[in-house]
Amino acid sequence: MNRIPHPFWVIVQKEVSDHVRSWRFNVLLFLILLTCFGSLYTAITTLVDETAKASDADDPYFFLKLFTLSDGSLPPFHVFVGFLGPLLGIGLGFDAINSEQNSGTLSRIMAQPIHRDYVINAKFTAAFLVVSILFFALGFLVMGFGMVIVGIPPTAEEFLRIVFFLLLSVLYVAFWLNLSVFLSIRFRQAATSALTAIAIWLFFTVFYQLIVHFVARAMMPADAASPQQLIGYQQFILNLMRVVPSQLYTDATTTLLMPSIRSLGPLTMEQTYGAIPSPLPLGQSLLIVWPQLTGLIAGTVVCFVLSYSAFMRKEIRSR
């Protein structure tokens, strides 16, 4: 091994090893593993009942149910990921820059012959790598267990759907990661940035829904409203909901994991008339979630650009 690694990868390597060795990450990992196996367990127990009473025994997407089924005691896998993912992203990013600044290591690293953006890019890359490996390992683990316990291998399409679902989850976590990295540049105290990130997350998951409900109630059209008005109203409320990244994620994952979902908005009778009541192929499902996907990517990129420019302009002094 004579190759000398590029400084960027040296930083990435160090960041990854820091994450993996940190208590914080291991606690989060433990939480995620726990919920993952919990939901797998409930999924499998309900799967047995489900198949017993199922009318369509030849459901082509039997395997995907591992990720979506639940008996009600524990939410299914994809809901859990949607819930814990932001926490993971915030956990990996909230002290990315300010802890280095507070411990005086940032100015020391900056005095090394590297470009300034290496630091922030490497921080992002490292956390992204860790999250990707974690989710793919987790997803494949669930698949493996499913295969062993249920005894049915997934079809190629199911496999692809799961891969897309995992990619989407990584992207979703990346959004929160970038947001918290931005906050870590903006706020000097790690606690402030963590709390702010959690506040934003809570706002979006709890309070935003409430606000949208208020707005929806206030704007409810009269009984005599025309169908166009009703549809416009529905669309408007949906679009309000879709400002929230978690809504985008939920929309996208449910569509990917439940092929029977044909549309995320209201459908008129004319549109459904004559449609064959069968699951959509992967390409069509992807087409439905394309706007959600782009929205999530855009959100992630915006957060990254914000943190990048904030970091490049920051004057780095010792402590």
Binding site: G104, T105, S107, R108, A111, P113, R319
Partner: peptide
């Protein structure tokens, strides 16, 4: 970058990775 290759800088109150 070229300057930083040739110049070593010890900030006041230098910090290291404690772990």
């Amino acid at each position: 970058i070229e300057v930083k290759k040739r110049v070593g800088y010890l900030p006041d109150d230098v910090g290291f990775y404690d772990q």
